[in-house]
Computed example of a mutant assay.
Amino acid sequence: MKEKRGIIIGGAIIGLLAVVSVFLGNPKNMGICIACFIRDTAGSLGLHKAEVVQYVRPEIIGMVLGAFIISFFKKEFSSSGGSSPFIRFCLGFMIMIGALMFLGCPTRMVLRLAGGDLNALFGIAGFACGIFIGILFLNKGFSLKRNYKQTKFEGFVFPVINIALFILLVTSSGVLIFSKEGPGSMHAPAYIALAIGLISGVICQRTRLCMVGGIRDLVLFKDSYLISGFLAILVAAFIGNLLFGFVNVGFAEQPIAHTDGLWNFLGMVVAGWGSVLLGGCPMRQLILAGEGNIDSVITILGMLVGAAFAHNFKLASSPEGPTPNGKIAILLCFLALGLIAYFCSKSKSNSKVKGDVKVG
């Protein structure tokens, strides 16, 4: 119970920080969204040309650095990698396609519900369904194989890149592109956003907070530890939204969201299925990358490229709804996920689930 109290308090802090970041300038119901923030960063780096979503988000940088700093000083930092890197890249790519169909990652899905956006219910249902599909393959022996110890230098590279990105951001470098309108132009002050990311990164590293892991562990092991953290985010963010007057209950006219329930559902099936095969949600991948996991870095690069691809080829949804190209992409993702899950499964035994798949 003492251990669970820690993740509940940590989740509540993240939920409140997400609302505070909205108060300070982030888009509504988007205090923290890993998928949206990686997409914005991709735009700022010039990887896509959607002018309304281009900004290097300090929250992402802070989460990586927070996980790096605390894991280093707790002597938990360890460089490792080499576990099916290209498949992980592809899974990260597809998770982003699914998330941008829904317009949010699992974290934003919870924050949208906390703000009264009932479209998030379709996303939650789809996300859980995707995780259940993934669990079926875990029980059949799905594995991306073991990883291998790498040099410490390799583990340091990703945090250093994030530090460099933040320096470019605060110096208003001409290298980066910044939105002049739209969601990309809406953000909390950079240093405060970095601090929010750092705090969130430390909390996630110490508690192993992961929504995919929460649902997976509840189903497989009847363990409610991880899911309690996301329930705490939901409750705390709802209370915070009430205090700031941000709650707007309903389906229509929600910020940066659409009302197509079917494609909200299917998009998050893809995100949930892909995430459980990877062993963690997008937020968890950031934390693992900060701890020195190169496989998670490869996954994040897949998400970055997926975000750029989604906007360059009109796959991402908008408040008007999903695009025809996006619908086709989601169906192709189902096919690709099915092939990956099938060919990487080796038996019906579930005795190695915790050993073969990194528990979030």
Rank of each mutant, 00 (worst) to 15 (best):
I32N: 02
C33P: 00
C33W: 03
I34Y: 01
A35S: 15
A35K: 01
C36T: 10
F37G: 10
I38M: 03
I38L: 12
I38Y: 04
D40R: 13
T41I: 11
T41E: 04
A42M: 02
G43T: 11
G43S: 10
S44E: 08
L45Q: 09
L45F: 12
G46T: 05
G46S: 07
G46K: 04
L47N: 07
L47M: 12
L47T: 03
H48L: 05
K49W: 02
K49Q: 06
A50T: 15
A50M: 13
E51R: 15
E51Q: 15
V52T: 14
V52H: 07
V53F: 07
Q54A: 13
Y55G: 01
Y55I: 08
Y55R: 09
V56M: 04
P58V: 12
P58S: 09
E59I: 15
E59F: 06
I60F: 07
I61F: 09
I61M: 10
I61W: 14
M63T: 13
V64H: 09
L65I: 11
L65E: 06
L65W: 14
G66P: 06
G66N: 12
G66T: 07
G66I: 05
G66L: 11
A67E: 00
A67S: 05
F68R: 06
I69T: 01
I69D: 00
I70R: 07
I70W: 12
I70Q: 06
F72A: 13
F73C: 14
F73H: 12
F73D: 09
K74T: 15
K75R: 14
E76H: 02
F77C: 07
F77G: 08
F77H: 14
S78P: 03
S79M: 14
S80F: 08
S80A: 11
G81I: 13
G81E: 10
G82F: 01
G82I: 00
S83A: 15
S84Q: 12
S84L: 05
P85V: 01
P85Q: 02
P85Y: 08
F86C: 06
F86V: 07
F86T: 04
R88Q: 06
F89S: 01
C90L: 12
C90F: 10
C90R: 05
C90H: 02
L91T: 04
G92V: 08
F93Q: 10
M94G: 01
M94S: 06
M94N: 09
I95C: 04
I95M: 08
M96G: 00
M96T: 01
I97A: 01
I97Q: 03
I97F: 02
I97D: 00
